[in-house]
Measured scan of single mutants.
Amino acid sequence: STVKVRLGHLEVTLHNVSEEDVRELRELWKNGADEEDLRRWLEEWKK
């Protein structure tokens, strides 16, 4: 499914993403990950 995730002022649209992935991303964000960390996660996730 396609999910729009809003993290601060960063809005990311993920395609074919699982609930688990979204949860993981939100956890990262809650734990103080900055945009760099999130971008890195997204790069990994896209592979």
Rank of each mutant, 00 (worst) to 15 (best):
L42C: 05
S18E: 04
N16R: 03
W45F: 10
D37Y: 08
E19G: 06
E35S: 07
A33N: 05
K46C: 09
L42A: 03
E44R: 08
N16G: 11
D34M: 10
E43K: 07
V12E: 03
L42F: 12
L28H: 03
H15R: 07
W29L: 15
R6T: 15
R26I: 14
R6G: 05
E19R: 09
W45K: 07
E27P: 00
T2V: 11
S1T: 14
D37P: 03
R40Y: 07
E35A: 08
K46S: 14
H15F: 14
K47N: 12
E44Q: 11
E36G: 12
N16Q: 04
G8C: 03
W41K: 02
V12P: 00
D21G: 10
R6V: 15
D37G: 09
E19M: 10
K4E: 06
K30C: 05
L38K: 02
E44V: 07
E20N: 14
W45M: 06
R26L: 13
R26Q: 14
H9N: 15
H15I: 09
T13K: 04
L42H: 03
L25A: 01
L25Y: 03
E43T: 08
S18N: 09
E36D: 13
V12C: 05
T2H: 06
K4S: 12
L25F: 05
L14Y: 01
V5S: 00
R39W: 12
R23G: 07
L28D: 00
E36R: 09
T2F: 08
N31H: 11
E11T: 14
T2Y: 07
V5H: 01
H9A: 14
E43Q: 09
T2Q: 05
K46H: 15
E11F: 09
K46E: 13
A33Y: 06
R40S: 10
S1H: 14
L10I: 14
T13V: 13
R23K: 12
L28I: 10
E24N: 11
W29V: 15
E11K: 03
D21V: 08
R23S: 10
N31F: 05
E35K: 06
E35H: 07
L42M: 09
W29D: 04
E43H: 08
K30S: 13
H9S: 14
T2A: 04
D37E: 15
D34L: 10
K46W: 15
K30M: 13
D37V: 14
R40A: 12
E44D: 12
V22F: 11
K47Q: 12
L7G: 01
R39H: 08
T13P: 01
K47H: 11
D34R: 13
L10R: 05
E43I: 08
E36T: 11
V22I: 14
V22E: 10
L7I: 15
V17W: 02
E11S: 10
T2G: 03
G32N: 11
S1E: 09
T2P: 04
A33I: 08
V17N: 00
K4W: 03
R40C: 04
R39P: 01
V17K: 01
V3P: 00
R40M: 10
V17M: 06
V12G: 00
K4N: 09
E27V: 06
W29C: 06
E11D: 07
E11H: 09
N16D: 07
G8H: 04
E11W: 15
H15M: 08
V17Y: 02
